[in-house]
Design a binder for these strands. Structure first.
Lengths: 192, 192
DNA sequence: CCAAAAGTGTGACCTATATCACACTTTTTT
DNA sequence: AAAAAAGTGTGATATAGGTCACACTTTTGG
């Protein structure tokens, strides 16, 4: 029980709605724990996406390869983030994105069936996911705003502030691919 | 009752979950109908945002004014769209965006209190908003992808496909402000 | 119905950033 | 520990698209 109370997922959910031990036990039973090696793919473009991933530790990137073979990063996911190709996951279609471990990772996976079952059984969980999704929506809107409004310098500074740990944790070229500038331009940005 | 059955909001909700007449009647009672004049603001930057808006008819734009006074458009909202500054609305803080009628509009407004009440009372509604929010999240991700990946020509073509009616319904400069290019560049794009 | 405001197209110029190339450093693999 | 692979900084160009300017057209409001 002491274990249960300290579970990181429980803490995460209880930021939004409180749970009894049995609530949480029931919820957790719908997830599967997985350890992933560096460079492992958890979602591949053109394949189905049965799972959503909640990151316990490590760092993943969700990216898209364009017709010129160039990589564009949609999001990084570290501890406490949810990540999957939600379009493909919800609609049970093939993925347009890849999701890839940049470090060894621990994740909890949640299948669509289990998610919908959980949501149907427990109003609390449906509510939790609504709130999460709302927050995600707001975050994406801010990113769009910064792509429309900001110069690359401003976007770089914002990134720095938002993910201070990532800067020295992952190769710069991925940060460039997230910000939408070339590796070289990014390098020139912070040599000032 | 025949009126109720045909209500556009009911159709909209029933794309996701079916409702009894009394369900819908109860839901609708939490909304307020408003007619808006062209050029009217429904959300102003730096003010609180008590309502979410569901558009029956007309066209609104949600935009941001940057430090140089330049306008950036986050989203257009026409029939069946939901629009508000969700960050400010959910967190009861002041808005960073403006929302403005580009045409005379009819909308249904939903206060945060009523929304949370509805969601608490009816699991179906919570579920509906979760699904909507998920879909919105996916749409924003696609927009980010197109900002990161596409040339302006590609973004313009995508816009054309996605909102064929808007092209000749609203001034081009707003389309430019949505796509993230200058009015002049946009003009040159389609003179080919 | 007319004046003022808003919208639109096009030329001339300028700037931020992409691209290519290469040398050097750090990390990974065997 | 050596070889291979990946990451990084910096110079030389090339270019998409921004900005400014102006003429013309359409819409709006009194």
């Amino acid at each position: 029980m002491s274990d249960l109370a300290d579970h990181p997922l429980r803490k995460h959910i209880e930021e939004i709605t409180s749970l009894s031990d049995s609530d949480f036990e029931y919820i957790l039973s719908h997830f599967k724990y997985r350890q992933l090696k560096k460079h492992q793919y958890v979602v591949q473009a053109d394949e189905y996406v049965p799972n959503d991933f909640w990151v316990i530790s490590g760092c993943l990137k969700q990216f898209f390869i364009d017709k010129n073979g160039k990589e564009h990063i949609i999001q990084f996911a570290t501890s406490n983030w949810w990540v999957t190709d939600y379009d493909a996951y919800y609609n049970q279609t093939k993925s347009t994105f890849n999701i890839h471990c940049m470090e060894p990772c621990e994740v909890l996976t949640l299948s669509l069936t289990n998610r919908e079952k959980l949501c149907a059984d427990m109003h609390k969980v449906d509510h939790f996911f609504r709130r999460k999704s709302n927050a995600g929506y707001v975050a994406l809107q801010k990113r769009i705003l910064s792509l429309l409004t900001g110069t690359s310098t401003e976007r770089y500074e914002k990134f720095n502030k938002m993910y201070p740990d990532l800067i020295n944790r992952i190769p710069k070229k991925y940060i460039a691919a997230y910000l939408g500038v070339s590796r070289e331009t990014l390098s020139r940005l912070y040599s000032k």
